[in-house]
Amino acid sequence: MERTRPIGDVLLQVDDISLSFGGVQALSGVSFDIRRHEIRAIIGPNGAGKSSMLNVINGFYHPQQGRITFKGQTRRRMRPHETSSQGIARTFQNIALFRGMSTLDNIMTGRLLKMHRNFLWQALWWGPAEREEIEHREHVERIIDFLEIQSIRKVPVGQLPYGLQKRVELGRALAAEPELLLLDEPMAGMNVEEKEDMCRFILDVNDEFGTTIALIEHDMGVVMDLSDRVVVLDYGRKIADGSPDAVRGDQKVIDAYLGVSH
């Protein structure tokens, strides 16, 4: 696969992250990096700590130990709205759309951080406030075109089928123009056709917008095809890290997935 944007320097570096909930050690001493413009997969058996890792990266969980460096800035703890204003967006394993709102409004919420007109202008809906709204609407319409969801623009997302909801959720994340996009099982529960569509969108996002992508996925075919590098977690520890081919042949990974007596 040829790519228009070569993989660059390190965008996100996680160092020695440990996270526990009471007595449960979700992550222990995990370190890896994500480079600019790459597609980085995080895999592992159920309960390996993959989603916890994403939650740590976007500030939803606060690790007891370790550092995260994003765009050269190191942090210990951060609130989700701070990470999103720095350029991290995500989708969720079980869809987290705003069900009462239309597709358009859902994607527009992704632009909230970029809208600045104050309260009084909004109350008047006139002049600058209206211009700002239309300006962001144009951006959102480009995303709607890109994801081919023009026909469901005004439909409340609660009425949409699962595959389309996943797509709208991707659209909402893209609307924020993130530098790092975290996708938590973007293809879970989809049929082959929907998966192919989603793969194409992920590759196009990566290629056209240059967005760096970290994804969690259980479909190994997808992971091996899409990703540039793979990190494998098991019981909260990193057991392998490298190119898809290297990871595939790794004995520890095979053991983790097939299960061996320890």
Binding site: H81, S84, A96, F98, G100, T109, L113, Q122, E133
Partner: peptide, 20 residues
């Protein structure tokens, strides 16, 4: 904008927080 942030909080507060 403000109405959308209200509705986002109403429909799913965690997701609302994560989009900022």
């Amino acid at each position: 904008r403000i109405g959308r942030s209200w509705m986002a909080i109403r429909d799913m507060d965690i997701a609302a927080e994560i989009i900022g």
